[in-house]
Amino acid sequence: MSTDTGESTALKPDESWETVLSTMHGARSAMYTAGSTAILLMWAGIITIAYLTQYAISTFATDFADSYPWFPGPLWAIITSFGVIGSMTIGHRAGRALSPGLAMQHAGIRVFAYWMTVTAAAGLLPGAAGLWNESGSEKIPFVLMGVIALGYVLFGILNRTVIAAFGVGMAAAFYVPHYLFDDIAPAVSGFAMLGLLGAIAMWVRRTGEW
């Protein structure tokens, strides 16, 4: 390496190794988190819609809510299915734009397998706890959100800090209102997620990182 004055400089062995490791880590993180910010924005919006829709049904369609107290389960399943499809589409396109090679395909498969495992756990754990019935259905969202938030935190710790922060924010937006605000908790959670959406948007605007 040469400086502006023409003098030659050389990296020390430990500096060279650190540079190689930093480059490898950056490339690996880019593969595993391709399109992640757009996906976070999308999920923040979807979860906001789900919370506010649940609150609207409970408030303005009380007969329906009383007759079908388990309605939040199917409601969330339908709304979040669009998020699953959108996540796969965004991630696939972002990955191909980054690198269409075999390494990117393998990274995509690993990320897909990770989130499918988290999704399966979110569905199986309530069943193992005996909640998939009319009496336990109200507790299912508490398990689902906990597992999904944990999935975001673990994935973010390994790959990108903002993803872990999103997981913590998503858990706080759900659990805090449900323990403090009773009947209006879904509305409070919805607005909390809306605030999280705004925070991510501001972060993207400030850093320019997608």
Results as ranks from 00 to 15, higher is better:
Ala34Gln: 13
Ala50His: 04
Pro74Ser: 01
Gln54Ile: 11
Phe60Ala: 10
Phe60Glu: 09
Trp43Tyr: 07
Pro74Phe: 05
Gly45Cys: 02
Ala34Ile: 00
Pro72Tyr: 01
Leu40Gly: 03
Met42Thr: 03
Asp66Cys: 01
Phe60Ser: 11
Gly45Phe: 03
Asp63Cys: 00
Tyr51Phe: 12
Ile47His: 10
Ala38Pro: 00
Tyr51Thr: 05
Gln54Arg: 12
Pro74Cys: 04
Ala34Gly: 08
Trp76Ser: 12
Trp70Asn: 12
Leu41Val: 13
Ser67Gln: 14
Pro74Asp: 02
Thr37Gln: 13
Tyr51Met: 13
Thr59Gly: 04
Ala61Thr: 05
Ala61Ile: 07
Gly45Trp: 05
Ala38Leu: 15
Ala38Trp: 07
Phe64Ala: 08
Gly45Leu: 04
Leu52Phe: 02
Gly45His: 10
Ala61Tyr: 07
Tyr55Ile: 06
Gly35Tyr: 05
Ile47Ser: 10
Ala44Tyr: 04
Pro69Ser: 08
Ile46Arg: 06
Thr48Val: 11
Ile57Pro: 00
Trp76Pro: 02
Phe60Leu: 07
Trp76Glu: 09
Gly35Ser: 01
Gly73Ile: 13
Ile47Tyr: 13
Ala38Gln: 15
Tyr51Asp: 14
Ser58Gln: 14
Ser36Ala: 15
Ile46Leu: 10
Asp66His: 11
Met42Cys: 09
Asp66Val: 06
Ala38Asp: 14
Pro72Lys: 03
Pro72Ile: 00
